[in-house]
Design a protein around this nucleic acid. Structure first.
Lengths: 212, 212, 212, 212
DNA sequence: GATGAATGAGAGTTCATTCAT
DNA sequence: CATGAATGAACTCTCATTCAT
């Protein structure tokens, strides 16, 4: 009953790797243009310029394709955040938060439509262990960053910061915003505020000011 | 090819209203137990105890059922927020924010699974004008509440507060949290922080404290 | 993982019954003309003059169609044998054996090709309980007939007689024989011989004689 | 559209012969464990440790593999029976029948599951001339054995004896019997009875006795 | 109006076979 | 010759929707 959602063969050979990548890219483009409902194996194959048979040689099911895409997205987010954490090693909390927030925001802007669809797909899929693991690692990473800077209840705080960032970023991007810097400033205010830190900018929005 | 997503007839007669409600409730239950993929018109009809034919008399398409459910959810959120705004009329900003945040949080907790699924469905549906309108009204409401208390850039702030609340609430509920009060306190910190207000609680999490 | 092989709905209404029968007859004809490999759900539906959808309304799977056909065949064999046993109630063993053998032989001749194919199909299907039950009933019937006539080891004997009859009958019919009476005489010799009874005919084949 | 079911090349070289045998053995094992439906060319190749391409070098089609297996089975039955006939040359009928029956029974017991599946496959395959020839030779052999002992209508008798043996043996083995000797005695009774000869055992079943 | 049998396009998936490497 | 990636026709089955009763 348990379906494998992992690719069928490790693409060792160059030919295979290419085919695999071509399929994933085709699927991505379809998701962006047609949405989740437009994703069919035959369509993906045709768009990728391969036969359905080939598609099934690399992915045991349609879901496996989605799973692989999600995995890719998550892994790249994780590694970007790891890199960001690395660059601010030893620096104080505000700077660290900035770096992480920036990294995650950048992520939302790469292929926004794709990211949104994949997120939805993730909820509908019986998500696998390795996917959960990746999400867990991100939490662990943020938690570590917070703990090193003596934030209490770091697990909870990490969870909340991730959720807040995600919520604001996806809403903003869904509504068409593209100004990364503006978005960053707003998200920063929320994060800093949540942490009880003074944000060094005056108002909640770009150039704005809040009167009580 | 453009489908109407509005109910086929304004159910004037009591019989019609009832049938309509029965269908919607059946759909809701299916969504909760089987997810979006488990929602089929035949299933809904059977669960509702009516024939498919009847179902199609009230809803022109499967999507129309979903649209109606979403509309209902949104409308109830809106009216709850309106009520909340009413109760804090004339009170200062922190109190108003508290009231709104509480209202929206309560909303997430009623039928959490259903709410999540409907949210996903909303993204996949070609969302209609009247649905957008409802969302717009909520923004307008919050914006009004903020403007009355002289918050600058109220439109943007309203957008952000809604997005932040939504992000934290749905993540928390998805991960199984049920402690409304705890969640409220955390969300409050974020909202107050974002607004540049002092939160009257000490730390970012329940009873916690943040060390710099 | 266990598939149901029983029809999906009890055909209560006349319309349903007809559709159901039409489907089974179409399947039968295809089996006769194309063999097991030629049986596809779409083909059956087309031949039956209904849509695939209808077919699946009555049978949950292709296998269920086969199962139903097999069940029908077995049931009719059983009831014919029961009738035969009834007519020879109280009569001596040779007469009883004759009656049963005749009943079963007649059965092979109705739609020989179909019977053969269904037999093969039966082996490939994960045969169900109710099918096994029918086979068991036949054994029980024969066993009863034998026991009433004081045949020792009636269970084993019943098994063997059924197997012998089946073997000879299907081979003969497969090779194109149509002379029921001739076949009956030969089968009778084997059965009587196995039972240690004197066959009242002279030779093993029609008009033939066996010289030692 | 007419396919050749004979191997593509006469395997002269040892390498070829080996590969060929390896493929056939792999196919046999798959048939035993997965049944006819589990036999796919790719699976056979993998199990045999060769590439599909190689497989197609030795066998022009999947059916050809099955045909070859059937041919092998039939040939070995034939040669075993020939050997048996040889050993009883000049001996009286009962002894000859015993020998043949024993030989054929032994055959059923070697790889019972495989034998059954191949028999089914044989019926579905458009059976070839050379296969029919082998079957014909078996009939001829038995017929010869009978004629030499002055059995009248030997052709018919041969046919019937083969059919009876086959029917009882396959039913018994299918139902899990493994006691060759017991089975032999029962089959012997039937054969001798059919031939109008006295069986030297008392009852139809092991140690049993038939009362009239 | 209500019913539910009927429809059929189209989805996911398999597998015998080919052919470039 | 061997390989195994690639092919694509064909199969089983689903489900939104219609329409005769």
């Amino acid at each position: 009953m348990s379906q494998r959602l992992t690719p069928r063969k490790q693409p060792r050979q160059k030919r295979s790797q290419e085919t695999c990548a071509v399929i994933l890219e085709a699927a991505a483009r379809i998701l962006e243009s047609e949405g989740l409902g437009g994703l069919t194996t035959n369509r993906v194959a045709k768009r990728a310029g391969v036969s359905v048979g080939s598609l099934y040689q690399y992915f045991p099911s349609k879901e496996a394709i989605l799973a692989e895409m999600i995995r890719g997205l998550r892994r790249s987010l994780l590694s970007d955040c790891e890199a960001a954490a690395e660059t601010v090693r030893g620096r104080p909390l505000p700077e660290a938060v900035d770096a992480l927030v920036r990294a995650s925001l950048r992520h939302h802007l790469v292929r926004p439509a794709l990211a949104r669809v994949l997120e939805r797909a993730e909820e509908e899929l019986p998500l696998e262990k390795d996917l959960k693991a990746i999400k867990g690692e991100l939490m662990t990473l943020v938690k570590g960053v917070l703990e090193e800077r003596d934030v209490a209840n770091a697990g909870q705080v990490a969870f909340d910061l991730i959720a807040l960032s995600h919520g604001l970023a996806s809403a903003a991007i869904a509504s068409g915003e593209t100004d990364l810097e503006n978005l960053f400033q707003r998200l920063r205010r929320a994060a800093m505020g949540y942490l009880g830190l003074q944000s060094d900018r005056a108002g909640p929005a770009a150039g704005g000011s809040t009167a009580v």
